[in-house]
């Protein structure tokens, strides 16, 4: 019994331990690593990824994986940038429009998987192509740079000269989503529907209404990701989203979110994002190239799978 507790404890805290270990390692290897400016860098480099991973988590809790979120980001970022650049809407309205459009795109994914009776991952392979085309049509393969300062402030402003606004926005969102998932009954319903849809249906839950809710929330978060990202870069183009899809899914898998649905803890996902972020930043600082980074990332994934499987056996 005691041994079981110990194993569960280790696998629960394996990510924070990993994070601390990598921070200590990089701090020893490079004296710039623990400077305020670099810590701020790590923060701002991972805020949009954190928000995106939160969206991925919600989708994975209901038992889905969405490969199209990357191009959702592209569509929304380009849409907002173009609307602002061409003076069609004021900045705030463009942002609201962008986030609403993203919710519609996400809902479209959900509706498609219901109508086609297919797994969301397969459906999203199709919708990914649709969104890709949509984003290139919108952007006409152009990069919309030079977004106004007011827009850049959303992610780049430093409150009191040091606290990045993107961090504040992300923190608020993470807290709200965390509260929603853990404390509200709707959050509980998401887990129920993902864990066992048939049991949820027979328990009187309206499975698809709950899934649609999840898609809407995830869509809104992906929309916010697009805003944070384009505000951070001061530009938007069709190629900006796709790379992030895999990063978000990687963070969730690293955090032990079950592919079968019904499980997943938000704080672990956030820590996982930072494990990956610190790794990328630190390895760059100490002068290790990209390829060792790939290997380290893969090794950490495999290691965390080992730990989480061990705890499942122990439970």
């Amino acid at each position: 019994m005691k041994k079981t507790n110990w194993t569960v404890w280790v696998s629960n805290l394996s990510l924070p331990i990993l994070l601390i270990a990598s921070v200590v390692t990089f701090a020893l290897l490079n004296d710039k690593f623990l400077t305020q400016i670099n810590l701020t860098n790590i923060l701002v480099q991972n805020m949009h990824i954190t928000v995106l991973s939160t969206a991925v988590l919600i989708l994975m809790i209901i038992g889905g994986i969405d490969l199209s979120i990357g191009f959702q980001i592209s569509v929304v970022a380009v849409l907002i940038a173009r609307t602002i650049k061409e003076g069609i809407l004021p900045i705030w309205a463009a942002i609201v429009l962008g986030i609403l459009v993203c919710m519609v795109l996400a809902l479209f994914n959900g509706a498609m998987s219901r109508i086609l009776k297919s797994h969301t991952m397969i459906v999203s392979l199709g919708t990914m192509a649709v969104f890709q085309g949509l984003s290139f049509l919108l952007s006409q393969s152009k990069t919309y740079g030079g977004l106004p300062k007011e827009y850049q402030y959303i992610a780049q402003y430093r409150i009191g000269g040091w606290l990045p606004t993107s961090a504040v926005i992300t923190l608020v969102l993470v807290l709200v989503v965390g509260w929603f998932l853990k404390r509200t009954y709707l959050g509980r319903h998401l887990y129920a529907v993902g864990d066992n849809p048939e049991a949820a249906r027979l328990a009187g839950l309206n499975v698809w209404r709950i899934k649609y809710l999840a898609y809407l929330i995830a869509g809104a978060l992906v929309g916010v990701t697009a805003v944070l990202l384009s505000s951070r870069t001061g530009s938007a183009d069709s190629g900006m989203g796709p790379d992030l899809t895999f990063t978000g899914i990687t963070a969730c898998v690293l955090a032990g979110v079950a592919l079968k649905g019904g499980e997943g803890t938000l704080w672990k996902v956030v820590v996982a994002v930072f494990v990956l972020g610190v790794l990328a930043n630190g390895m760059q600082l100490v002068g290790l190239g990209t390829y060792p980074q790939y290997i380290a990332k893969g090794a950490i994934m495999l290691g965390s799978l080992y730990l989480s499987n061990r705890s499942q056996k122990a439970a």
């Binding site: 480099q45 183009d237 900006m240």
Partner: peptide, 12 residues
Amino acid sequence: ESVEAGVTAAEN
């Protein structure tokens, strides 16, 4: 080849 990669690179 992304703008964001350039931002991160410049920061670091």
